[in-house]
Amino acid sequence: MYGNSQFDGSAAFSGGGFMPSQAIPTADPSSPAKSREAQGLLPLTVKQIREVFQASDDKANFLIDGVSVNNVKLVGLLFEKTERVTDVSFVLDDGTGRIDCHRWVQESLDTKEMELLSNGTYIKVHGHLKGFQGVKQLVVYSVRRITDYNEIPNHVAECIYVHCYNTRTRKMQDAPQATGQLPNPAVNTPSKGYQPTSSNHSQFSVQPIVDGMKGIDKIVLNYIEQPSCIGKENGIHRAELAKQLNVPEHKIMEAISSLESEGLIYATVDEFHFKSTVNG
């Protein structure tokens, strides 16, 4: 019975496994990369979700600040928890509003995670925003109790940051890519966000960060991003940077470490050679 069937790689690796089916916009053949970009996790308030713009009847199509919304992160108080055999429903109140949430419980892990939570606890949820007959609800796949309450102001700060990032990028580039990839505001994973899409010029996607940079960082980055430097397999030595830019080496090292932590450059063969993450 297996003899004839050919292994269909494209179907097996198309990403169906972990992703909710709605998140694969098969109706969008123009930009295959977009389906992945749209998977970003957007920190939001309930107020923002209420004002979300539903671009079409297509359930998967919400826009906030010009960015399509699929997966969202919210922080708030849990209320009205109702456990059923196959799912748990509850209301999340983040102080800006209340939204209905739904969690399917399939495995004992899901059940355990939900059992720990009682009404009135602060939780952080990751979920998928859905609209059904005009009613928006969240299908959540992670519900964690907040143990460090600094996460609440942190989430608020993230909402503000991401709102600024998305509204500013949109103003800056009127290009079709305006739905720009959202960087994860947690500094340690920016690499995904800053990679340019193939057709796009690298300057565009890097621009928003470059703006907030100190002078030297910017000069160093510009130098490293020159095609001649990108072309070198081992990248560029920091002594050469110091010489070429006429900047003391310790300043270069400061700039390098800050650019490295932003994920804009990386060390290559040893700790002296660096290359831009934006390569051709």
Partner: peptide
Amino acid sequence: FDVSSYNTICQLANGDFKHLFI
């Protein structure tokens, strides 16, 4: 608890970004 960040959040959420909250 980091009181000063919370205080900043209070100011931001009542200032330029009020529309995201209330």
